[in-house]
Simulated assay, not measured.
Amino acid sequence: MSEEPSLLAADSAGGHDSILLLFICLIGIIVIFTLIGILGSGVSRRTGRRKTPADWLGGIALLSVCATIALYIWGALHVMFMENANMREECAEAGGAAKAAQVDRYEAHYLPLRFTCHLDEGGSYDAAVPGYVNPAMAIAFIMAIATGAVSVVARDQDRSTSPTVTRGR
């Protein structure tokens, strides 16, 4: 009688917490809507004057942060849905049926996002998270940092070069 690990045992050996991941996704959605609200209020507040490069770069930075969070949520949902439903099927799809038969445990990683199938004879391979999620998330994050930093520098330069307005009595 061979003892093959059950899906429940494999999940408990290297599983992840769906409630935590769901909470992270919920917080991410709230942050996205908040940042879009901040961006929208900034656009509506400045309708009377011409937009400076710092304004444009600040908006691009906020949108890049939103894209980073949205991509993280998209990848996290892939990981979360693999916990309960069809882990072995995802491992079979990613590595083939022969490798899937040798899987003894599963493991989720949150940064970078990945769902790893571990083989009983050693070795592992990733499944479930689309291949574009982590690179796109890294690019959006780098773009957010870069445009945010340039926006702050441009805004500081605008303030230092603009003439100060003095009020007469």
Rank of each mutant, 00 (worst) to 15 (best):
A140F: 07
D11Y: 13
I145V: 10
S160C: 03
I73E: 08
G48M: 03
V150K: 01
R49S: 07
G96K: 06
L21T: 03
L119G: 01
G15M: 03
T166F: 12
Y110M: 09
W74M: 09
G40C: 12
E90W: 12
S41T: 11
I60Q: 01
A146L: 13
A154M: 13
L77D: 06
M143H: 06
L57T: 00
A94W: 00
G131R: 10
D120V: 05
L111N: 12
G123S: 02
A140V: 02
S18I: 02
A94P: 01
E83R: 15
I30Y: 13
L111E: 06
A146M: 08
I36C: 07
L71S: 06
I27G: 07
L62C: 02
P163W: 15
G48T: 08
E107A: 03
R169S: 11
L71D: 00
I69Q: 08
V133P: 05
V103A: 00
A10M: 14
L111W: 15
A61G: 11
N86A: 12
L77W: 11
L63P: 03
I32Q: 05
I30M: 10
A94T: 03
L119N: 05
S18L: 07
V65G: 07
P5K: 08
A67V: 06
F141R: 01
I27A: 08
